[in-house]
Amino acid sequence: MTPTWMPHGTVYGSLLNFQRETALWAERMAQPPYKAPPQAPVLYIKTANTFTPSGARIAMPAGTTALAVGATVGLVMGAVRDGCARPDLASVAGAVLLNDWCVPHDSYFRPAVKTRCGDGLLGVGGSCVPLAQLPPLASWQLEVRINGVLRQTVRLADLVRPAAQLLADVGTCMTLRPGDVLMLGTDCLDDGSRPLAQAGDTVEVSAPGLQPVVNSLVGASA
C-alpha cells in the first residue's frame, strides 16, 4: 500500500486571496480598525491536530451544526535555490489538495483559533505531486462535491496573489522551511458564504492530476 502523504512542517493558510471575496469585503476594509485593504498577505496557521488523511471521518466540533468547506491547494516547500533570497516556484517540492475546514463565522479579518484549528479540520490529499508533472497553476480548477453533487468550482486564475507572487511576498517577512506548506487560499460563493456540510455528509475536493480529498463528517459524540 502506498503511504499516505501528510504534512511534516508548518501549514500556513492565506486569507482574502480570491478576487470575489476581496471585492465583497472592499467596503468594510475601509472601516476601522484597518481603514484600508491589507498590503501584505494575511496568514494563519493550521496546527498539527487538524491534519486528517483523505478517507478518514471528521468529528464535528462540539456545539456546531455545520462546517464550511475550504477547497485549496497547498504548496509544499523544498529547499530554496542557491542565490535566491526568497522562495519561488522552483523552491516548491510539489502540490497537494487540501480541504481547509472551518467553523462558519462572520469575519475573516481576525479568525479565532477555535474556528480554524479544531481537531481534524484539515483534510489532506493522499499525495504531493511535483509541479513539473502538472499543468500551470493558473489553469487549475478545483471542484467541491457534497454527497456527489457539485457545489463549487474554484479557479486559481481568480487569485489576488498568484502562487509565485504569494510565495515572494510571504518571503519578505518570514522563512518558509522545507516541509512547510503554504495554502493559496479558499474562495467563496457569490453571496460570500462557503459550501456547508453537516454530520452524515461526504465531501470531495478534486482537481486533475492530484489525488482527491474525501472526508465524511460525523457527530461530535460519534
Rank of each mutant, 00 (worst) to 15 (best):
G63N: 05
A199Y: 07
V80Q: 03
R116K: 13
H105D: 06
T4H: 12
A62N: 12
V129S: 05
A168S: 15
A36D: 08
L159V: 10
L159T: 01
V92N: 01
G179Y: 06
N17R: 10
M6L: 14
R151W: 01
L98P: 04
S54K: 02
A199D: 03
R20K: 12
N215H: 15
L97P: 00
V213C: 04
A93D: 04
E27G: 03
Q152A: 05
A164E: 11
A66W: 12
K35Y: 14
P111T: 00
A79N: 14
N215Y: 09
C188W: 03
V160Q: 05
A85R: 03
P37L: 09
L122N: 13
K46Q: 03
G219T: 09
P38M: 15
H8L: 14
G70Y: 09
S221K: 15
A59C: 14
A59S: 14
P37R: 01
G171A: 06
L16K: 13
V144N: 03
V103S: 05
M77Q: 07
S221W: 14
P178K: 14
G94H: 06
D106A: 03
I58W: 10
R28M: 05
L122G: 11
R28C: 03
V181N: 02
V213T: 10
L75S: 04
A163G: 11
L122Y: 11
A90L: 08
L142D: 00
G123Y: 04
L159D: 04
A23H: 08
D180W: 05
G179I: 08
H8C: 12
L98D: 00
D180N: 08
M29V: 13
A90I: 02
T175I: 15
D82Y: 05
P87F: 00
E27V: 05
M6T: 02
L16D: 09
G209K: 02
G219K: 10
M77R: 02
L142F: 03
G94V: 00
L167K: 08
V103M: 01
S54H: 06
S216L: 14
I58H: 12
A112D: 15
E143D: 09
G171W: 10
A30I: 02
G171L: 10
Q19Y: 02
L217N: 08
G55N: 15
C128P: 13
P130R: 01
V214I: 15
V103W: 01
A68N: 09
T22R: 06
A132Q: 12
V203K: 00
L131A: 04
K114T: 11
L43G: 04
G63P: 10
T72L: 02
P178I: 13
S127D: 11
R28F: 05
A66T: 05
N215F: 13
I58K: 05
V213I: 12
L75F: 11
R177K: 15
A157I: 12
P37T: 07
G78Y: 06
I146H: 01
L156N: 00
M1K: 08
A132I: 02
D82L: 15
